[in-house]
């Protein structure tokens, strides 16, 4: 049974490559920067999060820039390991976080789709099938065999969307980027996304768009400064957001 369970989840980013010494002097001004036990300056990206997401829930992560939305998505995906607390994730995970993830600009569209398949752990035959499907869906036609470097912005969006959404995970982690695209392609893209979301048991979506939240989600978690400030049904959480109903 797909499930996400976090108890006191914390993520801290160490700041190594900037002048930590000068930063220490100004430390107390900014509350999210602190010095940890081995005297490193760390940014508390997520602080003591506890929540439980059950099958069937469509969760929106809302909050201003830097609130920790994408970091939380990456942590749920298993990229960052918590420095504090406990995280249990059950179920196959699909991530739509960065459109260009793992893309090679010098390889052709088809090669990139196959690479995507390998990243997902597919066999060679399955990769061929994937290339076939994604090629058709992206509508790139003959450009599929041309290096991605020569693509227009719209074309690379199509390619990454097509290759990234060919999966049917139980838990779908999505950044709002995937809801932005050129109008022509979005009609088809939205249909595909709807399929994907309906097929998944759990959706976690980071977004700024309140329309998107109302349309897709049943529950909202409002993050601010790396903490959960509100968690509940969409309308309740949105009503309390600064800026009113968005």
């Amino acid at each position: 049974m797909p499930l996400i369970e976090a108890e006191g989840l914390s993520i801290e980013f160490p700041l190594y490559h900037i002048g930590a010494r000068s930063l220490k002097k100004r430390l107390f001004a900014a509350s999210r920067l602190r010095e940890d036990e081995s005297h490193r300056i760390v940014v508390a990206a997520l602080r003591d999060l506890s929540f439980r997401i059950r099958p069937g829930e469509r969760v929106a992560l809302v909050g201003s820039n830097g609130a920790g939305k994408t970091t939380l998505l990456r942590t749920l995906a298993g990229i960052y390991e918590p420095v504090g607390g406990r995280l249990v994730v059950e179920g196959s995970i699909g991530t739509l976080i960065d459109p260009g993830a793992g893309m090679d600009m010098d390889a052709t569209g088809r090669e990139n789709i196959r690479l995507r398949g390998l990243f997902l752990g597919l066999s060679e035959a399955e990769c061929d099938q994937l290339a076939e499907e994604a090629g058709r869906f992206s509508g790139l036609g003959e450009f599929l065999d041309v290096p991605v470097r020569t693509y227009s912005a719209g074309m690379s969006v199509r390619l990454s969307f097509a290759s990234a959404t060919l999966m049917n995970p139980q838990i779908l982690l999505m950044d709002e980027w995937f809801l932005a695209g050129d109008a022509d392609f979005m009609a088809r893209a939205e249909e595909r996304l709807a399929q994907l979301v309906e097929g998944a048991d759990i959706l976690v979506l980071a977004t700024h768009s309140m329309d998107v939240v109302r349309k897709w989600c049943t529950r909202a978690i409002h993050l601010a400064g790396g903490r959960v400030v509100a968690d509940g049904p969409v309308e309740d959480v949105l009503a309390e957001l600064p800026g009113g109903t968005g």
Partner: peptide
Amino acid sequence: MDQVIIPETTRRYVRDAGDQQ
């Protein structure tokens, strides 16, 4: 649209900062 069947192995992972294994 036909979907490519991605192996849906149910996996479970636990990340516990107190017991990192």
